[in-house]
Design a protein around this nucleic acid. Structure first.
Lengths: 233, 233
DNA sequence: GTCAACCGGTGATGGAGATCACACAACGCT
DNA sequence: AGCGTTGTGTGATCTCCATCACCGGTTGAC
């Protein structure tokens, strides 16, 4: 949204926002050590199976976190928003990255080498705690992902779940029933584990049932309760 | 707290991650603080959604970790063997338990209250490390679970994957192609996200193809490669 | 302009597996 | 013995969705 050139002052403000739960001293140190780069759309920060090099922290933009099967099919775990670190579990445990991270739009990403992160963790207990918190948050989010995907075989239900999730992220917005749809049908399919065609058909069905309206890239979901009723069914 | 963490990460990554591998001092302290109880089969240590009370460490027996959907269907995440802690992510993050833990056989379980664990983690860097390692291991295991479940729609493939996993756990045994089958078909179905009947049929098919032999509760898998060939297909 | 690439809509078809409905074996219980 | 419980084997049917195929719209490059 803010298209200003980022100078140092704004950088500091950004840091405050990004590491708000960290003491200012630690946040500042991170700011000093990390290398911030702007990536174009489609850049792969790291790929599933690679040895960990460091953590990436999204500053601006959106990053797609996905895993892919031997047959080439893809499952999108989640879209990562600014303020969130990527690859922490891999870096801390020394295991290879469990997923692939790819920018969805031009993004500004801070990179912190594994050794630097570990050194800083040694210096600042708060940082170590921060990292642990994020790993367990990722774990919880992955568990939810499994629940939503496996325990509802109907594609309708999965899509309804996804959309309710969008609404949940939107509670703070001015118009909470409007969602800006920045995903293709194909990507939505990859998020809920179905084919593109099925997503198209489901959207058509939802529109026919007046569950959603679409104008351009904004999606209006007037009746959240009706959507939720599809889930329990 | 973090002082010892970083120095020992590589070391610990190489070591087996069990209770006994903690430094003797820490292990002894844990031993002092934890309450060890014997549970009968079917005891629920904690349930999905409950506020975290503490961690449970399996000393003897086997514990089933599962999540369940609104419709009552169940997905078994994994069976937890002695030496492994349960509920660490929930305890350190303060979130509710992400899964349900239930004993599969009479088991001896140590319990450590949340506040005690956190206190001990501050006291002993190695314990904090141990906890973090386990959380990221759980995260990685959950990611693998997702990959195996979503990215292979044929139930045949999922079952083959599961069995290959059994063989992997068995490499140390005297006869590595024999697996003691301590699960019902229903439970196997819950592990791979299919119905009991499908598991029965798949077993029958595998027997017909000479991929497995079964005598009592021991399963013989003579040809691992043949089983693996079902996975890529 | 034209052409290519991508996205979205929709019909037709087929197949994998859920589900229902039994039957049967093993086991513990009274 | 009979009886319930639990696990298993298997047929018949039915539903959902993947897949193939094709078409139209939009964007963007040259």
């Amino acid at each position: 949204m803010a298209t200003h050139i980022i100078n140092n002052i704004q950088k500091a403000a950004l840091a405050d926002k990004t590491f708000c739960d960290l003491p200012p001293v630690v946040a500042h140190t991170l700011e000093q050590e990390a290398i911030t780069t702007t990536y174009p759309t489609g850049a792969v920060l790291f790929a599933e199976g690679q040895a960990p090099r460091g953590v990436f922290i999204v500053r601006r933009g959106r990053v797609k976190l996905s895993i892919c099967g031997s047959d080439g099919r893809t499952l999108i775990l989640r879209m990562v928003e600014p303020g969130c670190p990527l690859g922490v579990a891999a870096v801390v445990s020394g295991r290879s990255y469990e997923a692939t991270a790819e920018t969805q739009e031009p993004s500004e990403i801070s990179f912190l080498r594994q050794c630097d992160l570990l050194r800083l963790m040694r210096l600042h207990g708060e940082l170590a705690l921060w990292v642990t918190q994020h790993i367990s948050a990722d774990y919880a989010s992955t568990c939810r992902e499994i629940r939503d995907l496996i325990l509802s075989d109907s594609a309708t239900e999965k899509l309804a779940r996804l959309m309710v999730g969008w609404l949940d992220q939107n509670i703070a917005a001015k118009n909470p029933s409007q969602v800006k749809l920045a995903l293709t049908h194909e990507e939505i399919g990859q998020m809920i584990g179905t084919s593109r065609e099925t997503v198209s058909r489901l959207f058509a069905g939802f529109k026919k049932q007046r569950l959603i309206q679409q104008s351009g890239s904004t999606l209006v979901i007037p009746n959240r309760v009706a959507l939720e009723s599809l889930i329990t069914a």
